[in-house]
Every structure is written in structure tokens, then in C-alpha cells.
Amino acid sequence: MSDITPELVRHLASLSRIDLHDEEVTSLTSELGQIVESIAKVQEVATDDVVATSHPIPLQNVSRPDEVGETLTQEQALSNAPDSADGRFRVPAILGGEQ
């Protein structure tokens, strides 16, 4: 019994900016349902007394001195840009026409 619904898949797709087709929503809903069911078992042993590990090798205080290093040129920075103008990356309107 999984709580993966087509609406949830659509919401997750919107959060992750993927414009899924309807067929993809359908197949993902069922696939994710199965996957989630099988991975939910982590909860069985994840008790309160167990600390979480986010880094496999524990290190701390890794930092660098505040010294300027090599930078990219503007040409390098823009070299892969799908669109640019005036030394900047160009994107279409951020707000839709109706707003």
C-alpha cells in the first residue's frame, strides 16, 4: 500500500521541473509505488537511538584560505550557454504573460 498517486507524481515532477507526459505519469506512479514499498523497509531498523550518517568518512572543518584563485573568462563562462547577450546568460521571461 503505497501513497504514490498520479497527483503526487505530477507534484513531484513540478518540483523537479520535468514536464512529464501523461503516459509517464501513469507508468511512474506504478513503478514508484513498487519501489517505495520495497525501500520503505529502512524504517524497520532506523530507531531513535541510531544516529544518521551523512558522510561515509567523518571529517570536519575542511576549509580554504580566503585567497583569490584562477577564474574563468567571460568567454569561457558563456562558451556553453544556449543563449546569451551583453556578457550575460539569457533566459525567456520569468513571469508568464498573464501576470
Binding site: 584562477e70 574563468l72 567571460q74 558563456l78 556578457g87 546568460f89
Partner: peptide
Amino acid sequence: HAPNVFGSEPNTNVTP
């Protein structure tokens, strides 16, 4: 390590 300065040419104080 890109410089933190104001008013430079666009996209010049950048690293990957």
C-alpha cells in the same frame, strides 16, 4: 576562490 568584488564586467568573477 572567485573574487568577491562589486561592479566588475558580468560573468568575470566566476569559477566553475
